[in-house]
């Protein structure tokens, strides 16, 4: 039997979905084999993970807490991709948003119902401020946002380290390297899961609807897909680019605000937990679709939670990072392979 491989210009959606599922399974299988080679019992570990994650309310609450920031950072990156911009700086914008929200919460004397919306706005503005320079540099000087957003992450990390161990250090000295506990907090929605979770889902649905059902969304789609075509149709490409990049920054900033006001309650170094970088992965898993972000974030949240459980079983933190890396790696291969199909030759040419 002979045949050959043919490449299609675009993959069939079903095939693409199957390739994704196969990729995730293969990644987990690879991880399992490596764990087994290191003397662990992968089946026992899987059983433990499934039981601890889905078998108890606490497990599900933990996943919910992890998923909330992932939805928003994933949405941030996915929105940027819609206009053709790679926002690698969701991490930095997350810190900037957390920083701004903390500032408002600590220093504005106001009741909760004023303070919380104020902190929300501050978080968004903080994220926006952090992406402002990369945005303008891209829009007016065509400087790659990939580099600028990435580099600003390190500035944000250091800024938060500085204020949380310096000027804003907890005056009562309960903790060594954090600010005081914030006077306000997001009310709880379901167990430990705060209202940030439904708000993040709502924001995602709103953004997805805005992109699909508004003229603005259509123009963004065309501008992001082919700026030349946008110029041809007379769409204001630069205005859309600036607006969408700022929106992307704001969403990541809101993720930081939710995290500090809803989950951690104190600003501290390392508060982002790499959520900003993991957002890139969520967006890639979502294939740039705003609603797909929800599924991508859920998967990422489960993996992160599994990591925490695996650590209680004596496994290293890096194991989890390696598993997420494997998933991304296999997904990229799967995406490419789903463009191919095998065509059999009806009559072999001899």
């Amino acid at each position: 039997m002979s045949g050959r491989i043919q490449r299609l210009p675009s993959a069939h959606p079903t095939v693409a979905l199957l390739a994704r599922a196969a990729a995730i399974l293969l990644a987990l299988l690879t991880a399992g084999v490596i764990l087994a080679a290191n003397g662990a019992d992968p089946l026992k570990l899987v059983a433990q993970v499934v039981k601890s994650t889905f078998g108890s309310r606490f497990g599900l609450e933990d996943v919910g807490l992890l998923v909330t920031p992932l939805i928003l950072t994933g949405l941030s990156v996915a929105v940027g991709l819609r206009i053709g911009a790679w926002n690698i700086g969701a991490e930095g914008q997350f810190y900037a948003g957390a920083f701004a929200a903390t500032g408002v919460a600590l220093f504005v004397p106001a009741p909760d119902f004023v303070l919380l919306p104020l902190a929300f706005v501050a978080g968004g503005l903080g994220g926006m401020a952090w992406i402002l320079v990369p945005t303008l540099a891209r829009a007016y000087a065509d400087v790659s946002e990939l580099i600028t957003t990435l580099l600003l992450n390190f500035v944000a990390v250091l800024l938060v380290y500085y204020v949380s161990t310096g000027p804003w250090l907890d005056p009562d000295g309960h903790a060594l390297a954090t600010t005081a506990r914030l006077p306000c907090e997001l009310p709880e929605f379901w167990g430990a899961v705060h209202w940030g979770f439904p708000l993040a889902v709502l924001l995602t649905v709103l953004v997805a609807a805005g992109l699909s059902f508004t003229r603005w969304g259509y123009e963004v789609r065309v501008s992001g897909s082919n700026p030349q075509a946008a110029r041809y149709a007379g769409m204001p490409f630069r205005r859309h680019l600036i607006l969408v990049m700022l929106l992307s920054g704001a969403i990541a900033g809101i993720a930081g605000m939710f995290e500090v006001v809803g989950t951690v309650h104190r600003l501290q170094g390392g508060i982002s937990n790499n959520f900003g970088y993991l957002g890139i992965m969520v967006a890639v898993l979502a294939r740039g679709s705003a609603l797909g972000v929800l599924a991508g974030a859920a998967l990422m949240g489960i993996i992160l939670n599994s990591g925490i459980i695996l650590q209680t079983q004596g496994l290293n933190v890096s194991t989890v990072l390696a598993i997420t890396g494997l998933i991304l790696f296999f997904t990229a291969i799967g995406d490419e392979l789903s463009h191919y199909r095998f065509v059999r030759n009806e009559t072999a040419s001899v």
């Binding site: 508004t214 603005w216 259509y218 789609r221 065309v222 897909s225 082919n226 149709a233």
Partner: peptide, 27 residues
């Protein structure tokens, strides 16, 4: 054309601002 976008998105690029494709700012 925007090659990666759908045939629909590409064919309405001249008239997306007008009814029936858009009503107000709704697409």
């Amino acid at each position: 054309l925007a090659p990666a976008l759908s045939i629909t998105d590409n064919t309405v690029i001249r008239e997306y601002k007008k009814p029936p494709v858009s009503i107000g700012s709704w697409f």
